[in-house]
Design a protein around this nucleic acid. Sequence first.
DNA 1: TTCACTCACTATAAAATATGAAGTTACTAG
DNA 2: CTAGTAACTTCATATTTTATAGTGAGTGAA
Lengths: 159, 159
Amino acid sequence: MSRADLAKHSCTVARAIELFGDVWMLMIVRETFLGNRRFDDLQRQTGASPHSLSQRLKRLESIGVLRRETYSEHPPRHEYRLTTMGRDLWPVIVSMKAWGDKWLGEGTPSIDIRHKACGNVILPQMTCPECHEPMEAHDAQARLSREFEHERNAIRSQA
Amino acid sequence: MSRADLAKHSCTVARAIELFGDVWMLMIVRETFLGNRRFDDLQRQTGASPHSLSQRLKRLESIGVLRRETYSEHPPRHEYRLTTMGRDLWPVIVSMKAWGDKWLGEGTPSIDIRHKACGNVILPQMTCPECHEPMEAHDAQARLSREFEHERNAIRSQA
DNA sequence: TTCACTCACTATAAAATATGAAGTTACTAG
DNA sequence: CTAGTAACTTCATATTTTATAGTGAGTGAA
């Protein structure tokens, strides 16, 4: 097995990791959430080389996370905008922010999140949609499907 | 700027991305949440080469995400266990799962999450800790600190 | 005591990927 | 006519990753 095989992994977490386990993919998504949509701005703010950026934008577009939109025909100019699929990555970035603020932060965070509805500056929290209690790792139990369990045992018993 | 410079970025999100924007880092964390703690199991289940795995484990240990524990002196045997810092990465993995289940999933997910307290199989949700409403990207407004804004404008105006 | 086997790695060469710098296309503004 | 901007592409070099093999410290069976 190697990195590319993760794309065919039966677990969606592994497949998502294969797509977004990359500095530039995540940095571009973060940047688009901050409102930057153009190649040059993305390049400067993420720090990616034009080559890397170009490749990642193509991948993000082909996945369906970004949509490339022409905003000027003459001269040809484009913007990269988050699709619904892309906006759904918000919790991923926010979770990273929460972790980063807690474990890497000194002083004031560079970015605040304000909840438009209630107006407060907050850090979103993981909660149970059934009982509405906040959740952490030890509140949860992961259960593997029978097929997935078999798959893993098969891997386990390979030389 | 290049990848390594992200480590000195003033934004904690960027610093977190620099650490975890890597397939193997994320796959190892996911695997430890599933209960695997040993080198060989991690290697087989993640699909990383021993070299890559060894490097990542060292990095995870030096960051403080994993703690290397000897469980047998003779022969020397070790386990890698999540620290509190590591367990705090749970929302990151769960967010990826939620995204993956929604956008990459066909059929039944390979992994279920059960909330121990209420017993339901659920997908955790991002909510506002103040008003307890579920939150998505469009419910939030990102605000940059003044310093960070200046930093970004400085980058912007660079040739 | 010799053989096969496990765990936890390290070493190495070849292959794949990323990087920075420069170049390109298609314009506009002065 | 020159300079500048946006959105890239190309290319030679540098770095990383991968697969494969090997190592050390043991255990258990014949």
